[in-house]
Amino acid sequence: SPISQSQFIPLGEILCLAISAMNSARKPVTQEALMEHLTTCFPGVPTPSQEILRHTLNTLVRERKIYPTPDGYFIVTP
């Protein structure tokens, strides 16, 4: 029987999409709110552990794709 394939999207890209959507909705993007958003909006995607989430967010900050503030994470705009 054929095996169904799913699209692979890197966690960093999913986080950027989620942060962008939450920023547009003016929702604060904390790590907890981000986990909740991922569970709700990406039900088929396994939720990352806190450690993996933190590591991926730090990587995105180093890559200058997002930036942290006391009010949460935001997408870097050119």
Rank of each mutant, 00 (worst) to 15 (best):
Y73F: 08
T40I: 08
K27S: 09
R54S: 13
N23L: 02
Q7E: 13
Q31I: 08
I14Q: 06
I75F: 06
S6Y: 04
C16E: 05
M35V: 07
S49K: 05
I66P: 00
V61I: 11
E13P: 08
T77Q: 06
S1M: 03
H55F: 09
T39S: 09
P68G: 12
C41S: 13
K27F: 04
H37Y: 04
T56P: 00
T59M: 11
R26S: 10
L38D: 00
A18T: 07
P28R: 09
Y73V: 04
T30M: 06
A25N: 08
R54E: 13
P46F: 01
V29M: 02
T39H: 09
I3L: 10
Y67G: 09
A33Q: 13
S24H: 05
H55E: 14
I75W: 09
R26C: 06
P78Q: 06
P2W: 06
L17G: 11
P10V: 15
I3G: 09
S24W: 03
L34Q: 00
C41N: 11
F8W: 11
A25P: 02
I52L: 09
R26G: 12
P10K: 13
A18C: 12
P43L: 07
E36V: 06
T39L: 07
V29Q: 02
E63W: 08
M22Y: 03
V29G: 01
A21C: 05
M22F: 04
V61M: 14
R54L: 12
P2I: 10
L57E: 00
A33T: 06
R64D: 10
S20I: 02
A18E: 06
L11V: 04
C41D: 09
S1Y: 06
S20H: 03
V61Q: 11
N58Q: 10
Q5I: 09
G72Q: 10
A18N: 02
I75Y: 11
P46W: 04
I3Y: 04
P68C: 14
E13C: 05
P68Y: 05
M22I: 05
M35L: 09
S1W: 00
G12S: 04
S4T: 12
R54T: 03
G44W: 06
I52K: 10
P28T: 13
Q31D: 08
R62G: 12
V45D: 04
A21V: 04
P10Q: 08
G72Y: 01
H37E: 06
A25M: 09
T56S: 12
L57R: 00
S6G: 10
D71G: 13
V61K: 05
Q50G: 14
T39A: 11
Y73N: 14
T40V: 11
T47C: 06
Q5W: 02
T69N: 10
T40R: 13
P46Q: 04
Q31H: 03
P43R: 07
S49T: 04
P48S: 01
P46T: 10
L17R: 14
R26K: 13
R26I: 04
T40Y: 08
L57P: 00
H37M: 02
P70N: 14
C16L: 11
P70D: 15
P43F: 04
P46E: 08
I66V: 10
E51V: 05
L38T: 03
N23G: 05
Q31T: 13
T47G: 04
E63V: 09
L60Q: 02
Y67L: 10
I9R: 14
D71N: 11
G72H: 02
T56G: 09
P28K: 08
G72R: 02
V76Q: 12
K65F: 07
I3E: 14
E36F: 04
V29A: 10
Q50W: 07
K65Q: 15
V76I: 02
S1F: 07
G44H: 11
